[in-house]
């Protein structure tokens, strides 16, 4: 469970151009949720995703990841939390260019110390589910945008994190691939029990999720 209490986040604090990106956010995300943070560009949905994912810091308030308060953790401890508990799907895929698809998918598992046998088994399982099992030896730059995004999803889910944070995962995909990706994400959520949080303004995602948290100028306006 993730709990946010009176979370505030500013950009360019104490400067003339100060932005109050998150205003007194109070939010609880239960295990197994399939939730969307929606709103117009600049409303704070990506920032919210980043602070939940321990990628960004907050200026005030508290964020609990299970019982652990993220805001009190050191940089190294936050890195370890991300490694062990969170999977990320970035809008720009962010695959490691020198590693093959197989190695990219198994990368987080490798960092977590899974055995080669376990990694291989899991990579085959996930890649088959995401229909990229025929591309395992390819390098990322040999794949289409849709395929790269599926590799990014596979990487996020492979190590069985508690939660996956997906920022605009369909932004670079056509409608057919977007639909395919969302079907897979839902399947992962249902089959693997992984919580998935999206930040997006894509209608397709809006229609696929079970919960929508709407933001406007850093404030939750609807839940």
């Amino acid at each position: 469970m993730i709990k946010l209490q009176h979370v505030n986040k500013y950009f360019y604090k104490n400067e003339a151009r100060e932005i109050h990106a998150l205003c007194d956010i109070n939010l609880t995300i239960e295990d197994g949720e399939f939730t969307l943070f929606s709103g117009a560009s600049g409303c704070g949905k990506t920032t919210l995703l980043n602070v939940i994912g321990a990628l960004d810091t907050i200026d005030s308030g508290k964020i609990f990841f299970d019982e652990k308060e993220i805001s009190l953790l050191s940089e190294d401890a936050r890195t370890t939390l991300r490694l062990n508990e969170i999977g990320f799907v970035f809008q720009a895929y962010n695959l490691i260019p020198v590693l093959s698809v197989e190695e990219n998918i198994g990368f987080v598992m490798k960092l977590r110390g899974f055995s080669d046998k376990e990694i291989k088994k899991r990579v085959l399982e996930i890649s088959a589910m995401l229909e990229i099992d025929d591309k395992l030896k390819s390098l990322p730059n040999a794949l289409s945008g849709g395929q790269q995004q599926r590799v990014a999803v596979a990487r996020a889910v492979a190590a069985k994190p508690k939660i996956i944070l997906a920022d605009e995962p369909t932004a670079n995909l056509d409608s057919k691939n977007s639909q395919k990706l969302m079907n897979m994400m839902r399947e992962l959520n249902e089959k693997e029990g992984v919580s998935i949080l999206f930040a997006s303004h894509d209608e397709l995602i809006l229609n696929s999720v079970r919960r929508v948290v709407k933001l406007n100028d850093g404030v939750i306006v609807d839940d």
């Binding site: 190294d76 890195t79 370890t80 490694l83 969170i86 962010n94 260019p97």
Partner: peptide, 16 residues
């Protein structure tokens, strides 16, 4: 630099 940022985001410790 972007790649290092990504692996840090994914959970690779600075020492590695």
């Amino acid at each position: 630099i972007r790649e290092f940022g990504i692996v840090l985001a994914l959970g690779m410790n600075y020492k590695y």
